[in-house]
Design a protein around this nucleic acid. Structure first.
Lengths: 204, 204
DNA sequence: TCTCGGTTTAACATTTTTGTTAAACAGAAA
DNA sequence: TTTCTGTTTAACAAAAATGTTAAACCGAGA
């Protein structure tokens, strides 16, 4: 049934949930073992140390996410469709692992050189990928002048922050879990509008 | 020279720097003591426990920041000026303690009820404070229709995310420290434009 | 000078967490 | 059945972090 080693993947899966989904950035090896229902020593058997397991998980997830996002940015569809698809993808990914960004921020603050592990061989940055199309839009006056870097940061900010700050947002605005879900689904259009200065058009 | 107890404030100051400025979210009591140049036991003498010190620091900073932000939102200046001032204030605060938001996110994930400590007595939420003026703007077609909640989240996202993700942004876009600084100063206008769909106007 | 208070320190104790190891286990192959 | 190999466990060791305490310190006032 399992072509891959069973326990190793189980541990990785549960650890990902603890760290990146539930946001227990400081989850101990014991907590991870408990979540996976295995003996703690197995974590060291498979991954040598907590740190090495972490690096492995990070690299795996970040890489997987990046591939999907890059594929969208590199496709040949029209710019606005591309950005819409990108927003959708980032929000989808963010819902799966809301604390991933947070984790990366914390980890790289503690250990700045680890950032290379996450952005390895990144000659082609995302802002480069959209540069030409964005320039085109600006020329057509379809969007206000903005640098590719600011555009990408705006995009990331608008998508990621609401996921990062889930608890705070829910509490401040008094949202239930379902209200928050609804809020997120609304955001796709909100973000798109913010990026494209869509003062006139409305969905319906 | 010091009306307030000297050492207690010194410790608090250094701890704030470690946690919220340098981003060492897991700084040990020893590291804090070292940073302040005092014996570790003093931390327990003054604050009983690491946890209690943390809560104290958080409450202090969050409260101070909130007061300043609220004062701006409650002032009677025109909406656009108000938002511009708010952006400036948030960026200024963010530069002082870039990791504060990150810290709050991590802490509240681990300990959800702690969020009440941060938002105590918050009957008047920020989205309520701008609700009327925002509605006015929308009526005048000066801004695309958007709910107060989404508007405030957009605002927070656009201001805070670049601070949160400093390391990642610098690395991805290949920015030096000075380039990042410059990037941040540019953002005030970028954020304003994104919020107000400013397709035509340009600063100069 | 002496002592009294808050402050600071060194030393100790405890708890938590990580990492190691030898032995038990379980299934496949001889 | 026996042996072999990779997996799993319990028990142990070590390190790191927190928290406690008794004594030293030190300046202000009696």
């Amino acid at each position: 049934m399992n072509p891959e080693p069973h326990t190793e993947n189980l541990i990785k899966e549960k650890a990902k949930v603890l760290f990146f989904q539930k946001g227990f950035l400081n989850a101990t090896t014991q907590e991870i073992a408990d979540a996976a229902g295995v003996n703690r020593a197995l974590i060291h058997y498979y991954f040598r140390s907590r740190e090495q397991m972490l690096d492995l998980l990070l690299e795996e997830i970040v890489n997987e996410k990046k591939i999907r996002k890059r594929a969208i940015l590199q496709s040949t569809i029209p710019f606005r469709e591309k950005i819409a698809a990108y927003i959708e993808e980032v929000l989808k990914q963010g819902l799966k692992y809301p604390y991933l960004e947070n984790f990366i921020i914390t980890e790289t603050a503690r250990n700045p050189e680890k950032i290379k592990l996450l952005c390895f061989k990144d000659k082609l940055r995302s802002s480069e990928l959209i540069k030409d199309q964005l320039h085109e839009e600006i020329k057509k006056k379809a969007i206000a002048p903005i640098s590719p870097e600011h555009f990408m940061v705006n995009l990331s900010a608008l998508c990621n922050y609401p996921l990062l700050a889930k608890n705070v947002i829910q509490h401040i605005h008094g949202m239930s879990d379902t209200a928050y879900r609804k809020f997120l689904t609304e955001r796709k259009e909100v973000i798109f509008n913010a990026l494209f200065n869509e003062a006139k058009t409305s969905k319906k």
